[in-house]
Design a protein around this nucleic acid. Sequence first.
DNA 1: ACGTTTAGATGATATATATCATCTAAATTA
DNA 2: TAATTTAGATGATATATATCATCTAAACGT
Lengths: 194, 194
Amino acid sequence: MRRSSEEKAETRRQIVKTAGRMIRGKGLAETGVAEVMAEAGLTHGGFYRHFASKEDLAAAAVEAGFAHMRARLAAITAKAPPGKGLEALIDTYLSEAHRDQPQHGCVMASIGMEVQRAGGVIQAAYEDGIAKLLALFTEHVQAASRRQQEDRAQAVLSVLVGGLLLARALKHDAAESQRALQNAKLAALRLAEG
Amino acid sequence: MRRSSEEKAETRRQIVKTAGRMIRGKGLAETGVAEVMAEAGLTHGGFYRHFASKEDLAAAAVEAGFAHMRARLAAITAKAPPGKGLEALIDTYLSEAHRDQPQHGCVMASIGMEVQRAGGVIQAAYEDGIAKLLALFTEHVQAASRRQQEDRAQAVLSVLVGGLLLARALKHDAAESQRALQNAKLAALRLAEG
DNA sequence: ACGTTTAGATGATATATATCATCTAAATTA
DNA sequence: TAATTTAGATGATATATATCATCTAAACGT
């Protein structure tokens, strides 16, 4: 059943989107091609009309995941009162919603280490995504020099990712997890201000 | 070929150790039971004389990994000049060696998210390990109250884990990766001091 | 309108993997 | 020393998984 090229592009987008969700939610290795296709309402056979391999799909999903996150964060800073952009970023990143829904959250915090090991095009897409994320943070950090802005952005991103990871790890103890989020927020703000 | 119970215990330790190394190096899902046994110089068949399942082994490996890390860190603070314990901890955690050798490093920074998804006894061992690691850091943080010590320990651990993750992600760009380590170190020290 | 192309379905293959039943020879134990 | 127990080996099973050849019907170019 041949589809129009517009429909094909839409199908591809759909596959990438569900793959991203499943990969963030269940992990790279645990997400199978057939499963993704089924979840997208297709059969596994047609997969290779869209992607050369599972690796290819994963790279596309990582790229799309970062792009989506950047768009969301940019929208949030745009809405925030002037000078409060970074604070809004931090609150969003360290929100309970983000902690509780890895499948809709940051790629870096959900499959960072697996990507590291995967290497190849997946890792390349990942590094590119991180660089662009750092750039976004850099824009919203105040400092004397560009270099100092970048340094602070690195420190902020570090504490955001680490804090989210810790909060997720402690999730069974609601109070302790909440505390981890709060401590990371305060830390991020302090690190941003020098 | 029956072995003495002392030999059996030693074999078990060997299996746990190699499993820990492989899991940190290649990931939980990518590490197979047969492969671990082969690496330990055994055949896959004898595995179930030692563990009830792969999950059981993974939990043991996580527990042993945290115990090993605590021992190493404790040794480092013991060697450091008085009052410099935390600084030594930070330098070790954010060293290039730790960045470059995940298979010998911190469980939290190498399989944190996978453990999260695995749940069950693996996650239980992981949470226990983190709690004890936090306690170790708490002892070496100065603050007015116990609660403040704990808060600062959480912040420090967050930036350590996040910084290591970022440094690993940027590893292909040596200068940038180095910078991430350095920024995280400075950040950790600042956060420790209030 | 007609022939060519191709998106997606069907079905097959090859490989890996966790788990376990059974076997055997050596270590306990009586 | 003889009987019993069991660590580890052998081999099998069941399941999942990536990948691809082939088929079909619909969209596109002529």
